[in-house]
Design a protein around this nucleic acid. Structure first.
Lengths: 227, 227
DNA sequence: CAAAAGCCCTGACCTAAATCAAATATCATG
DNA sequence: CATGATATTTGATTTAGGTCAGGGCTTTTG
């Protein structure tokens, strides 16, 4: 079904079990907006929040100069207005459709009701959000504190630790994607992998990586050793 | 009563019925920290979370090299250390008092008991966490994509936009702290401020900054222009 | 008020990693 | 299988910003 499919891609609901996604999709209302149409205004009471299915939504505030200040452009999978909605306050900014767009609307009362009847859903959402915060905190720290070889080593350790096979690893992303996840570029990643190979820490065959020296890799990841 | 009064200003507890606030205040413990005192360390097992009543708290991660990345600065009404309440058992980052501060401590089990009975508290928790998720997502993007002048410009714009006075700004943090928040070091921040001054964008007098060319600053922040 | 401590600025230097350019390898598709 | 498209590697070069060192300011405290 269309709505449920869309809900899987909402970052706010990531990782929730199937049945809870279904419950959520039951209370969602589809709303269609024309290009240029207002979705809500700053100061409006947030009686619900929106999730973008298709199109792009501009969230903005009128700056003092009269000029408008764009705060975000949200696209498919992004939620808007969820913070004031959960809090029961007003929208701090206005939103307008940049394209013809389809959104899902989650009414506050229905949502409350849902959580009341199914406390697990609330707790699950809280747990999922907490888990993602933990990851993001590490990512922020990693980006500014560690150099590329450390970041890469930490990434590889993570992959190795989250699978059975402690010898060989199949990369799930293109190397360019991994580079960008690690906050660097393809070329640098390639050179770093090469250095690790030269030092006998790993062996790289396309997307397949064989772990040769786990201690060394761990040392690199923790920042105690260097390439 | 002191504790209950303080609890009213906590955004996490907003909109809750009187009796819930009382229940919350019953389980809260007041803790006082000196300026510079550690509240918890990344990796410590968490037995509860904190809410700031007075003072400012720095949440950060430190590298072995000594360099630190500030993740948040929280003030009165903000919560900290809530991630391990619902996911995992340890704090993902460290926290230290920037001023002499009073915090309320909410023990893990007692709080989880409360949230189970009060769906609105769950909603507020979701609101807080989803707000934080946004902050961190944009912090990751900022750190990995933007260069220091852009990050600094964006930071200054944020400060200017969140206050009345659009001319002069009083920095609330030591410059070294700002550097660490922006993912760089004191020296680089100092040089960047100097460049901006030389170009007539701002004027720096100690902790006071006067905005001379808002368009230029905005251009820098958005990455369209360069220093 | 004087001394100490912390904070901030500046210069010289260095290095990690980005950029630019090009070659090669891998993959997908008619 | 040929052909283009996409991904990856490699080398040469540049540069942002980190490191180290020294000095001036400012704030705190006895």
């Amino acid at each position: 079904m269309k709505k449920k499919y869309a809900i899987n891609d909402v970052s706010l609901f990531q990782g929730l079990p199937e049945e809870q996604l279904e419950a959520l999709s039951d209370i969602a209302l589809k709303r269609v907006f024309q290009k240029g149409e207002e979705i809500f205004q700053a100061g409006d009471v947030a009686h619900g929040f929106y999730v973008v299915i298709t199109g792009r939504i501009k969230v903005y505030r009128a700056a003092l100069s009269g000029k408008e200040q764009i705060i975000h452009i949200w696209g498919p999978g992004d939620a808007l207005g969820e913070v004031p909605m959960f809090q029961g306050s007003t929208f701090p900014a206005s939103a307008q459709a940049l394209d013809a767009s389809e959104l899902l609307f989650f009414p506050r009362e229905a949502f409350r009701q849902l959580i009341r009847n199914e406390p697990d859903l609330g707790m699950n959402m809280i747990a999922m959000l907490s888990g993602r915060l933990r990851i993001l905190v590490s990512q922020v720290a990693t980006l500014s504190l560690k150099e590329v070889p450390q970041r890469l080593a930490a990434y590889l350790m993570l992959l190795f630790n989250s699978q059975e096979d402690k010898q060989t690893l199949q990369l799930d992303l293109a190397k360019g994607e991994i580079a960008s996840y690690l906050g660097t570029i393809q070329e640098t990643l390639s050179r770093t992998l090469k250095k690790m190979s030269e030092q006998g820490i790993i062996e790289v065959k396309g997307r397949q990586i064989r772990l040769l020296d786990i201690d060394r890799l761990e040392g690199l990841a923790s920042g105690l050793k260097q390439l």
